[in-house]
């Protein structure tokens, strides 16, 4: 028996916004540790990894590991029936062919009960190697969303460059070019600030498809800040923390010189 009650149901709604356009369906793996889902886009360019630890839920019970094969378009349609301040409970039997979703309004005067049919998804799981990243950059998530949107007007590639105390985003296309630089702020405890950490102070510059970066920014409402991790010739990691007990991470393969 699996049962997970999320007081802040909007977390699930927001997470699905950041997933549904990248992965049409996924295996949501439920264990005593929490819920995780990993999926790649069909062209093997971006990997999406969602982690919701058991502590994120006010009630969590998972007697045996359960796989919920969910169609994300359907899941999203159902979650849109929940209000932002609803409490959401997910329930499933041990070897489920359906999952039950219960929405309770904040003042408990409305309950909605949905059943979503599960599908068998034959999906490969990828092992993500531990990487020592050359640069770790934290920026306000809204700022990152805006930069990705603005630079997409210039071309299909965004170059992210990190040098000491500064991260630079640039794009070039037929209409012209653009370069947006964010300087590291003094006080990095504030969510509005920018922090730039570098290993060995070596500048690092990589090119990425703007289309995917824009997909990732659909998760903006999950967190005030977004973390970017770069390493030469490695996938970029874009992470949105979900409080202290969860995260939505994206891995994006770089564009390389032909």
């Amino acid at each position: 028996m699996f049962e997970a009650r999320l007081l802040q149901g909007s977390i699930l709604k927001k997470a699905l916004e950041g997933i549904r356009e990248l992965i049409t369906s996924g295996n949501w793996e439920c264990s005593s540790a929490g819920i995780s889902m990993q999926g790649m886009d069909p062209s093997h360019v971006a990997l999406t990894v969602l982690m919701l630890q058991n502590d994120l839920f006010d009630q969590f019970r998972c007697d045996r590991n359960v796989t919920l094969g969910l169609n994300h378009a359907t899941f999203s349609k159902i979650l849109k029936c929940a209000a932002n301040d609803d409490i959401i409970t997910l329930k499933a039997e041990d070897q489920p062919d359906e999952c039950n979703l219960l929405f309770q309004s904040a003042n408990d005067d409305k309950t909605s009960d949905f059943i979503i049919k599960l599908t068998d998804i034959d999906q490969e799981t990828l092992g993500i190697p531990d990487t020592e990243y050359a640069a770790t950059v934290k920026v306000p998530s809204v700022e990152f969303q805006r930069i990705c949107r603005d630079l997409s007007q210039f071309g299909d590639t965004i170059i992210i460059s990190v040098k000491k105390g500064c991260v630079e985003f640039s794009g070039t296309g037929e209409i012209g070019s653009a370069k947006i630089a964010l300087k590291e702020s003094g006080n990095v405890d504030d969510d509005e600030k920018v922090s730039v950490e570098m290993d060995k102070d070596t500048p690092c510059s990589l090119s990425f498809a703007s289309r995917y970066l824009n997909y990732f920014t659909k998760a903006t409402s999950l967190s005030d800040t977004v973390t970017l991790q770069l390493c030469p010739e490695h996938p970029l990691v874009v992470s949105y923390d979900i409080g202290d007990n969860g995260s939505l991470k994206y891995y994006l393969a770089p564009k390389i010189e032909e």
Partner: peptide, 14 residues
């Protein structure tokens, strides 16, 4: 503006 690489060249199937 560069060739798109695949994640499969970085990550291995489990």
């Amino acid at each position: 503006s560069g060739k798109q690489s695949s994640l499969m060249s970085f990550f291995k199937k489990k």
